[in-house]
Nucleic acid binder design. Structure first.
Lengths: 349, 349
DNA sequence: GTTGACAACTTAAACCTTTCAGTATATAAT
DNA sequence: ATTATATACTGAAAGGTTTAAGTTGTCAAC
């Protein structure tokens, strides 16, 4: 019943306390501490010293109320599973957190819990003035998150390829190019029947990946067999299922490109369960160069994607924007191929 | 620039605005919206309806200033590397975020960036009143983080075994028992020379792990060879180095227990690079049951540790404490063994 | 010896919410 | 008819910061 705070004995030092000690007004103290130049440098250093001695730290709520900004950026993660398989979000978080901490900003993380729809989560952060800007990852078609921030004219930066990339700040790699590189690599290895396991189709990036695949297949004169195109989520299990489907076709592919490393692990497992030797009987490639890809058996050919750097830069862009600077999209990152045993006979001793 | 009433940008709705519309005082509106019972239910519902229509959302900074609490809990992560290898923190974050979001709390994440020492980071969050409580993970000996929060009498919960566990709230598994289970499992397999790769010794848990190892070795009458005890950080590379050291001994171990899954991967790699077949020539076990352990080659015998659940429960305890409830440590979780090929000949076909 | 400029402050308002201490009215008890 | 009690509100203060506008004093210029 009684929700009264138990104990908060610590008497917080306020500007008023300092003002009393130094014999100046509260305003003078505030302006001194904030390095305004209408305070003599003598008193300024004196005030600062006293503040230091008294252990003053500004009350952020008060400052925020007054300034109408929070120096905090928001990040909403999807429902995180107990054994979060997806290193993508770990890297996003690492990049955003490191960069914003470096710049004196805080990061507020929320999970998109069920029972609350996603735009509600965004309203909560935005309308409650909990954050000054948002980082939005893995943009989707007709993304309601983007609608919400657009309506509110709320500062945001997107990590990934947004639907209308001329309207929002974003940073991304070129997945069309990435898929192209993978397909060409496989074609050079002599593959002709190449299967695809794409990521969920509501993601804008999935279309890019598919486009890259189709372009290069057509360019190589190989034609496109729609029956060899499957979709998976970002789990090994999803990849496993998609792999099974592809391998049970009457004419199964000799190579499969998977649009993410994690489901690629599942595809490999599915093939191995059917007695196929990856890299020998079936080539598999991933996307992202997760740590798991390196430690997979066999190690997975993949595309390097610096998710961490994207997050860091996105954060930097957002903060710059919040500070009123003019920010432009960085150029799309050119993907680079990492060849490992899963797709290369030469590496297979 | 002008913030006139005709401005297209929706000005924020405040209690005052609502009060004007409904013709009541600001106090009445506040109390109505907060379900105080000294407002008639008629006006209460009316006020709520108007608030809803006007799109009112409380200004959190103002509320926090007044209430002197933030409904936010803090989590400081170590410097996160670009390719964060350690799933431990991902799970911690997932558990804390999910649980606190569920309870209407926010999570503030900071990275322990270099150039700022760790207790400074804590002061920043605590003295700046950015958060109401902290989750502290992987407690160390004479942990300065715990000193800071103890000095300030700042609410906190520890995930892991703290040095003085009668003084702080904590949740942990029984690593003494965990190590014991592993050693006994190996002894049953016929191993006599068992090596150890421990986690960094500043962690309290490292002593527990070692104690479990030593106890069970002595109990089995095998004696302890201090030369077979190495230490590593939480990276594959660290494990690799430790593994090399152990395997280069005049009488190398036939089995190695590693106090964490991630360095265990490195140990396996080191052994494999020496031409040893894991599970056959050398048994290796890990700790934690990371996803990587399952997908390692060969799959890694390990101890199940529900980091996610720990984090979730820690968060629950912290919030309960913040609400003034009386909270007690949950019982230590009994570890369970997950046997995979890396330590079991029978599984090795 | 007035004017103006400048430095170094002070005062008061504002940011928005919550809560404490009243006040006014109606109802019930004596 | 008076007092007590409950209901439904109001006014003002408090929380700590920043800033716009004003004040004081000094010094220089004319």
């Amino acid at each position: 019943m009684s929700k009264s705070a138990t104990s908060k004995v610590k008497a917080d030092v306020t500007l008023k306390d300092i003002a009393e000690v130094v014999g100046k007004s509260v305003a003078a103290v505030s302006r001194a501490l904030n390095d305004h130049n209408d305070i003599s440098s003598n008193t300024r250093t004196y005030i600062k010293q006293v503040a230091q001695e008294m252990g003053y730290t500004p009350n952020l709520s008060a400052r925020r109320l007054q300034k109408r900004s929070t120096d905090t950026i928001g990040l909403i993660l999807p429902v995180l599973s107990p054994r979060s398989a997806d290193p993508f979000y770990s890297e996003i978080l690492a990049g955003v957190t490191n960069e914003s901490t470096r710049q004196g900003f805080d990061v507020l993380v929320s999970a998109h819990v069920n029972g609350m729809d996603e735009s509600e989560m965004y309203h909560r952060l935005i309308d409650g003035r909990r954050v000054d800007g948002m980082i939005i990852v893995r943009p989707r078609w007709r993304d309601e998150r983007l609608t919400v921030v657009a309506q509110r004219q709320f500062p945001h930066v997107v990590v990934g390829k947004p639907e209308f990339d001329d309207e929002v700040l974003s940073i991304t790699d070129d997945m069309v190019e990435g898929a192209t590189i993978l397909v060409n690599h496989l074609i050079v290895q002599g593959h002709k029947r190449i299967g695809v396991v794409n990521t969920p189709l509501d993601l804008v990036s999935s279309a890019k990946f598919l486009a890259g695949f189709k372009n290069s297949m057509l360019q190589a004169g190989l034609g496109i067999n729609e029956g060899l195109i499957e979709t998976s989520n970002f789990t090994p299990k999803g990849g496993y299922r998609a792999g099974q489907l592809l391998l049970s076709k009457p004419e199964p592919p000799t190579a499969i490109i998977v649009a993410d490393d994690i489901p690629a692990l599942g595809v490999m497992a599915a093939a191995q369960d059917q007695g196929l030797e990856i890299g020998h009987d079936l080539a598999v490639t991933g996307y992202g160069n997760a740590l798991l890809a390196e430690h997979a058996q066999p190690p997975l050919t993949t595309i390097q994607r610096s998710t961490y750097n994207f997050a860091e830069q996105a954060c930097e862009m957002l903060i710059a924007k919040l500070k009123g600077k003019d920010v432009k999209d960085p150029p799309m990152v050119k993907p680079s191929l990492i060849i490992r045993q899963s797709s290369d006979l030469a590496l297979w001793l």
